[in-house]
Simulated assay, not measured.
Amino acid sequence: MTKKPQMKELNLAFRGNLIQLNKKAITKLVQHHMAHTTWDIMDVHNYHKNGNGWSGIGYNFWIGFDGTIYVGRGFNQGAHCLGYNDTTIGIGYQGHFDKQQMTDAQLKAGIALNAWLIGQLPNVQASDIVGHGDLGNTACPGKNFRMSELKKGVSNGAVEAPNQQVGSETVTNGSIVDYLNSIGKDASFSARKKYATEYGIDNYKGSANQNLELLHKMREGKPKASYIGKRVESKHNGQLRFYNKPSWSDKYVAGYLKEGYGFPDIVDKVKVGKGYQYKVKNSKGHIYYVTASKKYVRVE
């Protein structure tokens, strides 16, 4: 029996009680893409739950760009293939495979997961791996889904753990390069060096550790700007206006700052007209806006 691949359990909150599947009744393993270029498992879970009104994510399992396998509904009835949800397992893959390429890491993870599932389900074999479009009127899982490679890998027993390690300048499968390509960003060394600076990684040389750190930070979201959470105060020799909404209009002036006075917490920086303002919070948690010009304020 194929060894169970590593999976992540996120303890997703579902609405209502899920219905346990009868493993002997399962006849197909249905492969899907979400048809969205960036959404991860939490985005899909929230959309299926709050947008579609379902119990939660419809897929039984989910595979991210980097090959990480997540448990969705597991061996409970899914909501992924109309008319077949009680006799199939649905596997969702991050990405839009009419617009993007399926990553090598996803292929490896898909082979490992489907092979393991076949070992758990007595009436399923490699020929029962199908795309959503084989059972319904849809283009899912997209023209770039690597179905033949997936089936061949499962049939030949070519099962290996998805490579989630990141190499150096010649990074390999499941790497920062794979990830950047999958989301349509420039993956060249010069581009990665720029991203590294934005995410606070100094002296980027493309080492394995630096690439792993960059991949982790980019998957977490936008970089935290250096001014977030810091104090901003007026250095203007006079009264500096602050506002109760992002505006330069007199009618939205909330008050004035004397030199040396300010706000303890910068929340964000926003563009207002041709300039920028800091979105700030005072000690009571009230939100205001003040110029971000270095001519008038300092950040500490």
Score class of each variant (00 low, 15 high):
L21V: 05
K235A: 10
I89H: 02
N211V: 05
D250L: 06
V71I: 08
K8N: 01
S293E: 14
G74F: 03
P141T: 10
R231H: 11
G275C: 03
G157F: 04
H80N: 05
G53M: 07
I129C: 08
I57D: 06
G136Q: 14
T38W: 08
G95R: 09
Y296L: 12
V44H: 04
L18T: 09
E198V: 12
S190F: 05
D265T: 15
M218V: 08
I26C: 07
V124G: 03
G53R: 11
A105Y: 02
A139G: 10
H132K: 15
G78C: 12
N144H: 07
A196W: 09
T68P: 03
M102K: 07
R298T: 07
W116A: 00
E149W: 13
S249L: 12
Q20D: 10
G16L: 05
N137S: 13
I19C: 06
G136D: 14
H36I: 04
S148M: 03
A13Y: 00
P264Q: 12
R15S: 09
K269I: 09
L135M: 13
C81P: 00
L29N: 05
N173E: 04
V171R: 05
G78H: 13
Y256N: 14
G200Y: 05
Q210V: 00
Y204N: 15
D186V: 06
N203G: 11
V166E: 01
L240T: 01
A225C: 00
P162C: 12
V171F: 05
A225W: 00
Q94C: 02
R219F: 00
N76C: 12
M1K: 04
K279Q: 15
W39L: 01
R192K: 12
S226P: 02
D202C: 13
G285P: 10
N76A: 07
L135Q: 12
A187Q: 07
L107P: 03
M1T: 06
V272E: 04
Y289T: 14
T88N: 02
N123Q: 09
A292W: 04
D268Q: 09
G255Q: 13
M147A: 14
G92R: 13
Q20I: 09
I176H: 01
T103R: 10
D104H: 10
P162M: 11
A25T: 05
G78Y: 11
K235H: 10
K108S: 02
V30K: 06
M1G: 06
H80W: 03
H132R: 15
G221I: 07
H32Q: 06
Y296P: 02
G95P: 13
H236M: 04
S127M: 01
K185M: 11
Q101G: 05
D104N: 13
L82Y: 03
D186C: 08
T103N: 10
N50R: 15
L135S: 11
S293M: 12
E233V: 15
N114C: 09
S148V: 11
L18R: 14
N282A: 14
L257W: 15
Q101R: 10
L10S: 07
K99N: 08
N237S: 15
T170A: 06
I89Y: 02
A191N: 11
G142A: 06
F242C: 12
E9M: 05
E9N: 14
G90C: 07
G110K: 03
V253G: 14
K143Q: 06
A109P: 04
V299G: 04
S249M: 08
S182G: 06
E149T: 14
H286R: 09
N76Y: 12
V232E: 02
G95T: 11
Q125E: 07
G206W: 02
D43C: 10
V171E: 03
A196M: 08
K222M: 02
M1L: 01
